[in-house]
Design a protein around this nucleic acid. Structure first.
Length: 583
RNA sequence: GCGCCCUUAGCUCAGAUGGAUAGAGCAUUCGCCUUCUAAGCGAACGGUCACAGGUUCGAAUCCUGUAGGGCGCACCA
């Protein structure tokens, strides 16, 4: 249970009581009342703005109302003091026993601590990666993969019913280009000199093995054949092979999907037509001519009548074409159909994780979702900014034109999946991210992955020592949840418990805001608090976790260490990073 | 020209949906190992939250405008 929600409920009760007594009027808007940790720890552990928010509508002075509320809150369980401060804040100071109880709660829950029912089982579809099946993934794809994967785990922990989805763009012109690139490699495999790969085809070497396989399988049957004879075969084989490649790369990072949706299958099943007709029925389609874009015109721009969707009725800047001049669907049309499909499969909340270069796409897709679902479903598009690959402070040179770029797989094989996953979350999604291949493997506090894992390993080191020096002590979380925690009274110990007890709130906040990076930051903070506590034991021997002649204190502190390890492990599990016990 | 995102300590960045005296890490300076992992910790120094207005009890956060950076801009995906 998020303890701040608990206190918010208590405040609500106090307000209701004052209403019953006629001190406060009925019908107050209590939605702006908060219960949160004050920034300054000198102000206690829970702070509320209730008196300030309610003062005006109640016709009272904030501080007068605060006193009335404080009187009622101070007698609730675990509250030691309720002070009125500043313009009308009520600051609650909680008893040590309250925090000791929280630790027991953490230990009882184990790594399930932080799980929440906030989501109420609402169906969320998280779409991520969706890299075109035209080659290996690069590091930028990796960022989206991690952000999406962790966001999905986070939402699951917060009580949403999550579907993890990959949209396979296997229907557009790009996969035909892929087929032609493969065909060229096929002829090469048959012994033909192909020279430089022409502009516009994929130059990478990754098609060579498949081309050889096709040459072995079909010989020169397609060598001089017309496009129509081989195009669809080569395309299907190429897409299948590229998806295998991508799935392998994802597996190497531990990124999972429940559903792979094929654009081609959607189109062939008439999904786009159906979605289109739905829009027609809603009166949102018309034939018209768009205004030319202001400023610089594209060279080949000409006024042309098009089949348009009234996106501007739903917040977009202009209406958007759904058909190309040759009568086929635009990508946008099939993507409308795809999102409509997701909604029909039950998604109430849709999240798309994509690259920042899709920024221009956000408004129109949000408009389309609003239109197609009559506002019943929401769409949040998380745009991930670029990843700058560095090595020891120098940018790693990459030339996309020659196909000579560092692949995601190379990076994962080089530094490890845990490192890649964690580092990708050390910035919020819309900020540029420097990924330094050298620094991320350093074993120092500059490296957040190491820093957090080290805290977990250190905790387990204490647990191992405890098993020796306290024979007969069961150091499992479940067993330690029943020991006497009263000896945990030092300020630093209580401070650590407070931080651990914040975990459910962090999960809920990050899930609500769709911001998985908050988990990584929280874990760094927890690790810092633990390293700090550890070192207090160096300065003052009586603060060491294991004291030879103080069994009761030692056992309580082992429980604290176990609680810390448990919360860190819980967080790392959300990130998909291994909680190592020894380093 | 239009739209979206960004601008916080010398550097790299957080800032929990509007709270109290704006926080970390790095760098710089000074301390802490006969001890449960010094692979770590503590302290000091460091700020016109790009700028100018506005909204209110209260703004880094919301609104308007300006400057700078990134991305995108009919018939690509």
């Amino acid at each position: 249970m998020n303890l701040f929600s608990e206190f918010k409920a208590r405040i609500g009760t106090a307000v209701a009581a004052l209403q019953t007594e006629g001190v406060l009027p009925e019908g107050l808007d209590t939605s702006k009342i908060s219960a949160e940790p004050p920034r300054d720890t000198a102000h206690g552990e829970v702070s509320t703005n209730a008196a300030m928010v309610l003062a005006k509508p109640a016709g009272m002075k904030p501080r007068d109302l605060a006193v009335l509320l404080a009187d009622r809150l101070v007698v609730t369980p675990g509250v030691e003091a309720a002070d009125v401060a500043g313009p009308g804040f009520i600051n609650l100071r909680l008893a040590a026993s309250f925090w000791q109880d929280r630790l027991a709660e953490i230990l009882r829950a184990g790594t399930d601590y932080g799980s929440s029912s906030m989501g109420g089982g609402v169906a969320v579809n998280v779409e991520y990666v969706s890299a075109n099946p035209t080659g290996p993934m690069h590091v930028g794809h990796g960022r989206g993969a991690v952000v999406g994967d962790v966001l999905a785990s986070l939402l699951h922990k917060a009580g949403f019913a999550v579907t993890r989805e990959y949209y396979v763009n296997d229907a557009g012109a790009q996969v035909d280009v892929l087929a032609r690139s493969l065909y060229l490699r096929y002829r090469e495999a048959l012994g033909e000199a192909i020279g430089e790969i022409p502009e516009g085809l994929y130059p990478g070497e990754y098609l060579v093995p498949l081309a050889k396989a096709l040459a072995a399988e079909y010989g020169d049957r397609y060598k001089a054949a017309a496009d129509s004879d081989w195009l669809s075969l080569f395309r299907d084989r190429a897409v299948a092979a590229m998806m295998d490649l991508i799935r392998d790369d994802l597996a190497a990072m531990g990124v999972k999907h429940d559903v792979f949706s094929s654009e081609r299958a959607l189109v062939e099943a008439g999904g786009v037509q159906a979605a289109f007709e739905e829009l027609v029925a809603k009166g949102l389609i018309y034939e018209g001519v768009l205004e030319p874009p202001k400023g610089l015109l594209p060279d080949d721009w000409e006024a042309r009548e098009q089949t348009l969707f009234r996106a501007s009725d739903f917040g977009d800047d202009v209406d958007r074409p759904l058909k190309k001049s040759d009568g086929s669907w635009t990508y946008f049309a099939s993507d409308i159909a795809y999102h409509y499909d997701k909604h029909r499969r039950g998604a109430e909340v849709m999240i798309d994780v994509m690259g920042a270069d899709h920024g221009g796409y956000v408004k129109r897709m949000a408009a389309a979702v609003k239109a197609m679902t009559d506002g019943k479903a929401s769409l949040d598009i998380k745009l991930c900014q670029m990843v700058n690959l560095m090595r020891d402070g120098e940018p790693v040179k990459m030339s996309k034109r020659s196909g000579n770029f560092v692949t995601l797989r190379e990076v994962v094989d080089d530094v490890g999946r845990d490192v890649v996953r964690f580092i990708m979350l050390t910035r919020k999604n819309d900020a540029h991210l420097d990924f330094d291949l050298k620094k991320v493997t350093e074993q120092s506090k500059d490296n957040p992955v190491f820093y957090v894992q080290y805290a977990h390993a250190r905790a387990h080191s204490v647990l191992r020592h405890a098993a020796e020096s306290l024979p007969g002590l069961d150091v499992s979380a479940a067993a330690l949840s029943t020991v006497d925690l009263a000896p945990l009274t030092d300020e630093a110990e209580i401070a650590l418990i407070k931080l651990l007890a914040a975990w459910p709130r962090v999960v809920e906040g990050a899930a609500e805001a769709h911001e998985p990076h908050r988990i990584a930051y929280y874990l760094s903070e927890v690790a810092a608090a633990f390293h700090s506590l550890w070192n207090k034991g160096r300065d003052a021997a009586e603060l060491r976790f294991l004291l030879p002649d103080r069994k009761d204190v030692s056992v309580a502190r082992v429980a604290l260490v176990r609680g810390l390890a448990s919360v860190v492990a819980s967080g790392l599990m959300v990130l998909g990073v291994t909680p190592v016990e020894e380093m």
